[in-house]
Simulated scan of single mutants.
Amino acid sequence: MKDIIFDDFQNAVDDSLLRHKSLLDIITKLEESQGRINRALAKSVTNCGCIEIHAKKQPSPNNDDIDMDSYKKQLNTHLDGTLCDNCREVLEREIGNNLFYLTSLCNLLDLNLYDVLLKEYNKINTLGKYTFR
């Protein structure tokens, strides 16, 4: 069922993309949309203040025998707070635009978005925490 939603989305993107059919248009719009996500996040911190960033050096494992689960618990997101409704709405819109252009790129290259997601999902499930991302 979920693959149908992805396929329907991918087809809807293909039907609605009119002005930016060129590969160059799509990749620059994809990059621009990523910048807009970053800008919306920055504005959530600097203008709204609903989230705060408290960054510091992440701890390094002391030896090769470290347990990955306990190491993961030591890592910090550097993020405090939660998005307010307005910032959440802006970020959802910007992430949606990013998905639109990512899907447009998939369409242009004859890649199925669901297949790409499924391969990444399987890789993560196979390697688990050892993907080291």
Rank of each mutant, 00 (worst) to 15 (best):
K123S: 02
C50L: 02
I51Y: 02
I95G: 01
T103K: 05
H78I: 07
C84R: 03
L102A: 14
F132A: 02
A40D: 00
G35M: 09
L105C: 15
F9W: 02
L83Y: 04
D14L: 12
K129A: 11
K56R: 15
T77N: 12
N112L: 10
I37P: 00
N11K: 13
L105E: 04
D3Y: 14
F100E: 00
D115E: 14
Y71I: 03
N86M: 07
E89A: 15
K119S: 12
I27A: 01
E32K: 01
I95W: 05
R93K: 13
E92N: 10
Y114A: 03
L109R: 09
K72N: 09
T46H: 14
L117Q: 15
I5P: 09
A12H: 15
D8G: 10
K72A: 15
R133W: 12
N63G: 06
N107K: 11
N86T: 14
Q10D: 00
N11P: 08
N125R: 13
T28F: 12
M68G: 08
L24M: 15
H78T: 04
C50G: 03
E89P: 06
D3G: 08
G35V: 08
D8M: 15
K2V: 04
Y101E: 00
D85E: 06
E31K: 14
D8F: 14
L109C: 10
R133T: 15
S16P: 02
C84Y: 02
I5V: 13
A55Y: 09
N38C: 11
L109V: 09
L102T: 03
Y101G: 00
D64W: 02
K72W: 05
T77F: 07
T126C: 05
L75G: 11
R88M: 11
T28R: 12
P59T: 11
L24Q: 09
I37Y: 03
Q34K: 13
K56N: 10
E32S: 04
F6V: 08
I66K: 00
G96T: 05
V13P: 02
I4W: 04
D65Y: 00
A40E: 01
L99T: 04
V90E: 02
K2Q: 06
F100N: 00
S16A: 08
K43N: 10
N47C: 08
S104E: 03
D110F: 13
V90I: 04
C84V: 10
E94F: 06
H78L: 03
C84N: 03
N47T: 11
I26K: 03
C50H: 02
L105T: 03
N125F: 15
Y130W: 10
L24D: 05
T103M: 11
H54A: 11
D110E: 15
E94R: 15
L24K: 06
S33M: 06
A42G: 03
L99R: 09
A40M: 06
T103S: 05
I37M: 07
T126P: 04
L30P: 00
N38M: 15
H20W: 07
I66V: 14
L18E: 09
P59M: 14
H20D: 05
I95Q: 05
R88L: 07
Y130G: 05
I124N: 07
